[in-house]
Design a binder for these strands. Sequence first.
DNA 1: ATTGAATATGAGACTAAATCTCAATTATAA
DNA 2: TTATAATTGAGATTTAGTCTCATATTCAAT
Lengths: 166, 166
Amino acid sequence: MRRPAQTSRAAGAPARGAEQSESSEKKLFVDFLLDKNLKLTRQREAVVDEIFGGSGHFEAEEIVQRLKLNRSRVSRATVYRTLELLLECKLVERLELGGTGSYYEHVHPGEHHDHLICTQCGNVIEFHNEKLENMQAEICNNFDFQETHHSLRIFGLCSKCGQIPQ
Amino acid sequence: MRRPAQTSRAAGAPARGAEQSESSEKKLFVDFLLDKNLKLTRQREAVVDEIFGGSGHFEAEEIVQRLKLNRSRVSRATVYRTLELLLECKLVERLELGGTGSYYEHVHPGEHHDHLICTQCGNVIEFHNEKLENMQAEICNNFDFQETHHSLRIFGLCSKCGQIPQ
DNA sequence: ATTGAATATGAGACTAAATCTCAATTATAA
DNA sequence: TTATAATTGAGATTTAGTCTCATATTCAAT
Ligand SMILES: [Mn+2]
Ligand SMILES: [Mn+2]
Ligand SMILES: [Zn+2]
Ligand SMILES: [Zn+2]
């Protein structure tokens, strides 16, 4: 399985205009930092700018490299530390796509999607289905389980790869 | 989060008597091996016996250790290699419970369940919901996606941990 | 039985991702 | 200023898992 980490955005998981969200989400992050007596440093800002400015699924090391090329130098340790903070305040999610390491993605508050992962070509399709979400909530309810988050990954062959019989 | 890897079996994901299944599933494995011109060696047999004899979620290293204590010595490499084979023929599934490494579990052919994972105490609850499964199939259908397998993990606080407000 | 080819194993080297350490730096408040 | 807390980066360390390769085993064909 290749890992090109391509991402298809499905109807139902629409792209949000980056204009409004980027700055307001950055504010959410800053508030989160202030709340914990943490500072918005040059390095942290570079990391969030890079992440909020881009799109799709990415690896931690990718951010290190992109920053190295484009703007300021930020150490791997700081990138990981900043990702940890972004996870904590729910502006970033971690995802395991079946390979070795973790991928991350920028999440817009209140939005959520799950993933179809092609094990042949690495294509990742995002989808959202409210009925499915509701059923999950019902299941949690039945078990008196207080969900914080979930991850549904469906592995298989995308439409393109399914044509060619294996 | 502790990692005691306790497992609660929910109604709807009932335990199957080990009597009948264990031997017949072992036969499935042997047939699978023969089919690929692989041999049922002393070591491979020790690994499957250990796995099919036990229950719940376990780590690879756990199998190495259990075998070291109880019966034959099998190298880590061979345990990993045998797990790979068991995954391939679908008698074992790999699962990521949020910690560092992977867990595995023995799966009975045709059965399937998903997991509620308590991030507080590590308790893992298994559940199965046919309606949910059907909806997933429908989604795959919509995307012309041929599913091979999926993994739904719901993280949060179990009934016990949810009582004590964090 | 002997041989030869294919298959399997184990010890330990190796890898990759992520975390940790700690000395040096920077921010903030008194 | 000075003290305190927060932050950083370089590189060491950890961990889970994979890989290598010399040796051993299996099995079918003589
Ligand atoms: Mn996504
Ligand atoms: Mn399970
Ligand atoms: Zn594909
Ligand atoms: Zn719990």
